[in-house]
């Protein structure tokens, strides 16, 4: 493990804002995209995304 403490990890050597906002915005963008897509699928009455065997069979 590279970090001495939890505080050091969150501080990111003084670059916390830049590192965490990069990570945060990326996460938000991806969650948002999946969320929009899922509501679109719901609207079109497409099968929900679950990992299963009988999925999407016609």
């Amino acid at each position: 493990m590279h970090w001495n403490s939890l505080e050091a990890f969150f501080a990111m050597g003084g670059y916390a804002f830049f590192v965490w906002s990069s990570l945060g915005v990326t996460l938000i963008a991806m969650v948002l995209e999946i969320w929009i897509l899922q509501s679109q699928r719901k609207q079109l009455k497409l099968p929900r995304s679950t990992v299963s065997q009988d999925h999407g069979n016609v």
């Binding site: 590279h2 990111m12 003084g14």
Partner: peptide, 24 residues
Amino acid sequence: GFFVAPTDFQQGEAYRIIFIHVPA
């Protein structure tokens, strides 16, 4: 990227943005 990779000697911890920036 965040727990194993060492600190960059020039850029400190800020370089860790690379793990998202370059793949994106």
